[in-house]
Design a binder for these strands. Structure first.
Lengths: 342, 342
DNA sequence: CCAGGACACAACCATCGGTTGTGCCGATAT
DNA sequence: ATATCGGCACAACCGATGGTTGTGTCCTGG
């Protein structure tokens, strides 16, 4: 591919060969092999060089795309100055969607999305420089951030009720949390001790709900399958959660109001991480746009609810932007060595 | 790359090896080579298979992108059922922009844009099936379409005047064609006998202009260079022509009104070409949306002008959608053999 | 403690992809 | 008309690449 593009740019096999530091014969053989593999002629050989055929013209932009994809793939893991790498709790949940927004708003930023096992692994990865940021709700009780990891309340996500078409509440537009007392609410796969368990535990306690967080997680599909089939259980999902389900299977999303539970997503990063794109991401998660005031109202005016442990530890207060150390962009932090980032 | 993705999907080297019809050892060596080349570890080897590392997670979507790019590149030239291939007169002119619109409107359509030497080559390529369609103004006098090539007036493009900042007309908002009599208008590189020469020749004759179409074409850059530097010449450009010029160099686009000359772009295709995307393209160039009524008005209400030879030969009348023959999708037409397109 | 599953390493070998040397072809100059 | 030259293709050759088979190591589960 590289040879093909080089010839298309240079117009002559010989010049492309010089460019690529090989002989003209090698270039000729590469083109012959490519043309044989594709079954078409890519260049029209003329007395003064090579011109693209129609097939070659059609092929060229795709070849450039491929080389760009290779470039980006290498850049994603290049030690020293790689793309911004952000951990999300799941690729179909709100943080991933927010990162999609960010990517659209800043197409020039190289961004990679990864998923770590749990919040502790995420914090370790942030401290070691393996990832640049993480969306984790670490303000939960009992968790304590290391000094060199900074967190801000990034954005809040209203929670909705998800039911099958036969559910008692399937036809209502909105419900209040207190009205859900007595209904079976089923959230399998939530490991106790995690941020989710703390959130839904507090939610259940605050409104007298019964939330079954027991049982192993068989994945989203069986859960939705069960929801769609049976009239009894319901589950909570985030407003921006993507459900991949054939034609939604008749599932209903029901807004929760008076108050609306909102899940507080936080962004964590290393205090000394100088990755230039990290600032852009933090700026994107601007204070006003994405966060709801605790105990306040949504944009549409509805009252909101968040766990009590969110308010006292309002983490945005220690959003100090000082960047004291140096970071080699991939490996470990080095607070002493000088040296820039890309 | 393919091996890497196969392992990421399968979760085990052995399964990927089976999938790829090679031994597990070969897969192991491929991964080792890739990891060595990148300088990072892509998989964490566990007792029951292989899990992606963080670098591997970041690498994976780019690897998939690369494989998709390869897939599309091959599809672009695959004999028998390749992507829709459309000829445009220049990549920065309006037809290319319209194809960009079409691509955005139909992201699922595989579309390749090529440029042929002249209208005759385009017609030959359409007849032989090498390309599927062409934007060429072949309704000019003296040109005659073969019976098996169909044309419709695809869209009309208003013409603007382009001047340097020192030009006498640089500050006006609009000019009438008749007001340009006596001004130097310079359009180098237009070969006499082509569709452009016919258009601008008629335009000059209709309003008493002097258009210099002599001189070789040194490309767009020297032309814009001259325009920007000297106070004297001006040139015509299409409304949708892309000028790539560092900060535009102070060039001014001046609308032409009373009447507005519009360039009639046509779409040509082979009567019997059954490529499914061709219909989508023709539908995209719907009758009402893109065409101005000859001698009528633009959307903004201004009167328009088109060469006289456009009106009598209103080609949309013979837009017959019959598809009589069969087409092998790449090579030549075959009006007898049965066989489908993709 | 042993058996089995999964990946890595070693040895071997065919093929691939590079090099040098040469031939052919069309355009241009003499 | 013919010589020359620029540019690409073909042939012969050879080291590197990338596959195979065989074996080793490590972890897990019975």
């Amino acid at each position: 591919m590289r040879t093909f593009v080089a010839i298309a740019d240079a117009g002559r096999f010989q010049d492309a060969a010089t460019e690529l530091s090989v002989t003209q014969q090698a270039v000729s053989k590469r083109v012959a092999a490519l043309e044989k593999g594709l079954g078409v002629r890519l260049f029209a050989r003329t007395p003064r060089g090579a011109r693209l055929t129609l097939d070659g013209q059609a092929f060229l932009p795709h070849a450039r795309d491929l080389l760009r994809a290779e470039e980006r793939a290498v850049a994603a893991v290049r030690p020293g100055r790689r793309a911004l790498r952000v951990d999300v709790i799941g690729r179909r949940l709100a943080p991933a969607a927010v990162l999609g927004d960010f990517r659209r708003a800043h197409p020039e930023v190289e961004l990679d999305v990864v998923t770590l096992f749990d919040a502790d692994a995420a914090i370790d990865a942030i401290r070691s420089g393996t990832i640049d940021a993480s969306f984790r709700a670490v303000t939960m009780p009992g968790s304590r951030l290391p000094d060199d990891v900074t967190a801000v309340r990034a954005f809040d996500e209203p929670i909705q009720l998800l039911t099958g078409p036969a559910h008692e509440l399937a036809e209502v537009r909105t419900v209040a949390p207190a009205e859900l007392a007595g209904h079976r609410i089923w959230m399998p796969g939530i490991v106790s001790g995690t941020e989710w368990a703390a959130f839904y535990g507090d939610l259940a306690a605050a409104f007298g709900l019964t939330i079954e967080i027991t049982g192993p997680d068989f994945g989203t599909e069986p859960l939705l399958d069960t929801l769609a089939a049976a009239p009894s259980p319901a589950t909570f999902v985030g407003e921006r959660t993507h459900l991949v389900w054939p034609a939604e299977h008749g599932l209903r999303r029901i807004a929760v109001r008076d108050p609306t539970p909102v899940y507080p997503h936080s962004l964590l990063w290393h205090r000394d991480n100088p990755h230039p794109a990290l600032g852009a991401l933090r700026d994107h998660l601007g204070p006003a746009r994405n966060r709801l005031s605790p105990g306040g109202t949504t944009r549409s005016g509805a009252r909101t609810w968040t766990p009590a442990w969110v308010h006292p530890a309002r983490p945005e207060e220690h959003d100090e932007r000082g960047r004291h150390g140096r970071y080699d962009g991939h490996g470990r932090y080095d607070l002493h060595r000088r040296g820039g980032h890309r």
